[in-house]
């Protein structure tokens, strides 16, 4: 290794990404469900109650779209285009019986999360007991997840915005062991690289960046949202299993995650399997 590279590494390591608190501006919420009448009203009321903190902070306009007002995905997209909401609140498997099986989100949510730039709050399906349990429940424990937390100001700002005052904002980062081991396997076959040193140093480095960023978030939010308790959950393991474990252990009320991927049309690599598996809690998909 050259000394130029050595010093560049030192300076790059010192050049940290700083969190910048920014208020998330929401004007209206579009509530979309597949029920009509009282079912739609109940879904809208429960969603509004869950997001009560937004109502308190902003002068929000709530618009409900019952199931009878759209029959196809283009119908729904047209409605979103007309309303231009700041947030869409819906549930998985609109107009579908597939909610009983944990394999998809349903075509409406699949398209909504990718075809619009509007964040989508996906509530548990109204027929699941978890939806009934949301009555009077607020997001007091909110977990932000992504596989690249560092520098993701928008994700953190949204998460802080929806966390109930006095609540816990859990900023999580799980480094995928499978990918790490694949690289280590390659490194272990390169004689010029010390495998033991590489394993230790690379792992430490991978975890240090999100830790530093979360520390910066903690400092930033201490000024902009002092009522929140910010916690860091930085670890390594199997992505899905690790996040599921963290959700259960920390009794998370709301998961916030990025779903858009600049390089592909499909949902962000980690977001989709997590959204499929974690059906019992609301998900805010950015």
């Amino acid at each position: 290794m050259t000394r130029v590279d050595q010093f560049e590494s030192v300076f790059r390591s010192a050049a940290r990404t700083v969190f910048r608190p920014e208020a998330v501006e929401l004007n209206s919420v579009l509530v979309v469900c597949d029920g009509d009448g009282s079912a739609a009203e109940e879904f809208a009321a429960r969603s509004r109650s869950f997001l009560g903190i937004l109502d308190e902070r902003e002068n929000l306009r709530w618009v409900t779209v019952p199931g009878s007002e759209f029959r196809t995905v283009p119908d729904l997209l047209d409605r979103v285009e007309t309303e231009r909401p700041g947030l869409i609140c819906t549930h998985r498997h609109l107009h579908s019986e597939s909610w009983r099986w944990p394999y998809t989100l349903g075509e409406y949510v699949d398209v909504l999360t990718q075809a619009t730039t509007t964040p989508v709050l996906v509530m548990p399906h109204p027929e699941r007991p978890e939806f009934q349990n949301l009555a009077g429940h607020h997001p007091r424990s909110v977990m932000a997840i992504t596989d690249h937390l560092t520098g993701d100001n928008r994700l953190v700002n949204y998460s802080a915005q929806v966390t109930h005052p006095g609540g816990h904002l859990l900023l999580s980062h799980v480094e995928d062991d499978a990918i790490f081991e694949r690289y280590m396997e390659a490194i272990s076959r390169i004689p010029t690289i010390d495998t033991h040193v590489a394993r230790q140093e690379i792992r430490d480095r991978l975890l240090k960046d999100p830790e530093n960023y979360i520390e910066s978030c903690r400092e930033g939010l201490a000024r902009s949202a002092p009522e929140l308790t910010v916690e860091a959950l930085v670890t390594s393991g199997h992505h899905i299993r690790a996040y599921r474990r963290l959700v259960e252990e920390r009794e998370v009320d709301l998961l916030v995650m990025n779903t858009k991927d600049e390089d592909q049309l499909a949902m962000h690599g980690l977001a989709y399997p997590l959204a499929i598996e974690l059906r019992t809690i609301p998900l805010l998909m950015l």
């Binding site: 030192v10 050049a15 940290r16 530093n212």
Partner: peptide, 8 residues
């Protein structure tokens, strides 16, 4: 400001 002189 993002530079941390204590890092090294």
């Amino acid at each position: 400001e993002g530079f941390d002189e204590r890092d090294g």
